[in-house]
Amino acid sequence: MKTQYLSAKLLLIFLVFNLGCSKSDDGADSQTTLEQQFIGTWKPLKFVIVCSDGGNEIENYSACEQTGRLTISSNGTWSETYFYEYVDNMCEEDGVDSGTWKIVNGKLIIKESEFGEAEVTFFEISESTLKVGQYDDDFSCGIDNVSSHYYTEYVKI
């Protein structure tokens, strides 16, 4: 009887400890998870403009443009190769950008070789989808020129 009581008590302590101490309670653990989700190779799918009046403008990338890649490395560097479909369906590399990245308090900060450091103001990520863009007061869309934000949507490959 004492052994069963002791076993039940140990099981209860184990459950309380493990259920009470989830990783999501610690900001550092969720930060690491966000970084881990971000690291990898991403294929561009579409460019989206979201108007505050509810209208969206979506430009799906062609098969050629989707051969481009955004590569996020664990050492804090990134590079992106762009492709463009020219006349006669010729698909050619259209440029390469690179720089460094960091995530601070859930916000993505990038540094490009040419333009310096900037905070990405629109950043959403899941295990397989990445949306990176900007809220832009100088950019408007729709008939009434309402405010908007825009982003490129990627899928992890």
Rank of each mutant, 00 (worst) to 15 (best):
L70V: 09
S30W: 12
C64R: 00
I58T: 15
I49A: 02
Q31I: 07
T41G: 14
T100E: 12
I103E: 10
S74G: 08
R69M: 14
V104Q: 14
E59W: 15
Q37K: 15
E65P: 01
G55N: 13
V50R: 05
F47T: 06
A63D: 09
E92I: 09
T33M: 13
F38N: 01
S30H: 07
Q37H: 13
I72G: 00
T33H: 15
L45E: 15
T71H: 13
T67N: 12
N60I: 08
V50I: 07
T81P: 01
T67P: 01
E85T: 05
C64Q: 03
E59V: 10
G76H: 08
C91N: 03
W42T: 11
I103T: 14
G95S: 05
S62G: 00
L45R: 12
V104Y: 08
L45N: 10
D26R: 10
G55V: 15
Y82L: 03
N60G: 05
C91A: 04
F38Q: 05
L45Q: 10
G95R: 06
K102I: 10
M90G: 10
V104W: 12
G99A: 04
G76A: 15
E65L: 00
G76K: 08
S52R: 14
F38D: 03
M90E: 13
I49N: 00
Q37D: 11
E59G: 04
S73E: 15
V96A: 09
E85L: 01
E85I: 00
E93M: 12
